[in-house]
Nucleic acid binder design. Sequence first.
DNA 1: CTACTCCGTTCATTATCTGAACTTAGGTTC
DNA 2: GAACCTAAGTTCAGATAATGAACGGAGTAG
Lengths: 157, 157
Amino acid sequence: MKWDDLAREPCSVARSLAVIGDRWTLMILRDVFLGVRRFEAFQARLGISRSIVTERLNLLVAEGVLERRPYQDRPVRHEYRLTDKGLDLHPVIMALVDWGDRHYAGAVGPPILRRHKGCGCDFHAVQVCSECGEPVTARDVEARPGPGVAPEAKPVA
Amino acid sequence: MKWDDLAREPCSVARSLAVIGDRWTLMILRDVFLGVRRFEAFQARLGISRSIVTERLNLLVAEGVLERRPYQDRPVRHEYRLTDKGLDLHPVIMALVDWGDRHYAGAVGPPILRRHKGCGCDFHAVQVCSECGEPVTARDVEARPGPGVAPEAKPVA
DNA sequence: CTACTCCGTTCATTATCTGAACTTAGGTTC
DNA sequence: GAACCTAAGTTCAGATAATGAACGGAGTAG
């Protein structure tokens, strides 16, 4: 399978990865969620090829994850901001942070603390069932083919 | 920055991506969570180069995400199973599924339905604060440098 | 003996990424 | 008003990684 075929797979993971599954795209999104908005900043922070930054940003804009909007005239300069669709990626980033915090932080503790504005506590994300509100782990989930036709959906791990 | 440098970044997202951020690694993990365990199955389902399957599985085993264990002697054949560390990746996969379901499923509906064994309902994952239990969105989070030293942690989105 | 299965490895071709220079359009310093 | 600066790209030769196809090895089935 080629990378481009992912978008046509009957699988939501594959379709998501077709957009954000690229090597650097998620790093760019991390920065966007931290408030980085400009081309130069992405390039400098990540230290990757400028052409890659261009390409990834263009893809994210084309997919409606980011919005390219001018922040000044003369000369016209643009910044990249999360759309609502882009903000929906927050759980993905949070899940990555949590996994990294748990398994790679070491004794020192995590490099970034996240405070929940609602309660004022430092926290990590817990995934709960949308219906009953109970926490969900891998073993609590049973996958089966849905209306959009799935590739063999067997039980979980 | 080179891809290998990611693991040394003071950022949990970067460290996570150093392990699972590869093009095909997350697709392999998707399959593992669906119950796929064998080399041939990964290769056949993904249709990617066998050398890539080898390399990715080896990396995931080396990182302790998967465990390679014999499931028969003569000839010795191995299967790949999630370790506890691997099971911890479930929220990442779930978040990707949810995003794909929401933005790429179309009118037909999602390709896979997930039922919560606890309550018996089809569900999607909701992220809540580990401390107060309230749902968390991007705007509810305030990031700041932690003990592990962070790169400039500015407010979110 | 031949065919088949599972799990890999090897390697030439092809695709992708990098790093450095260049462009465009205007601003700042002196 | 020449020299330099910034932000946001583009271009392209060379390095790196992925692909697809063939090959190997270790056993089983007939």
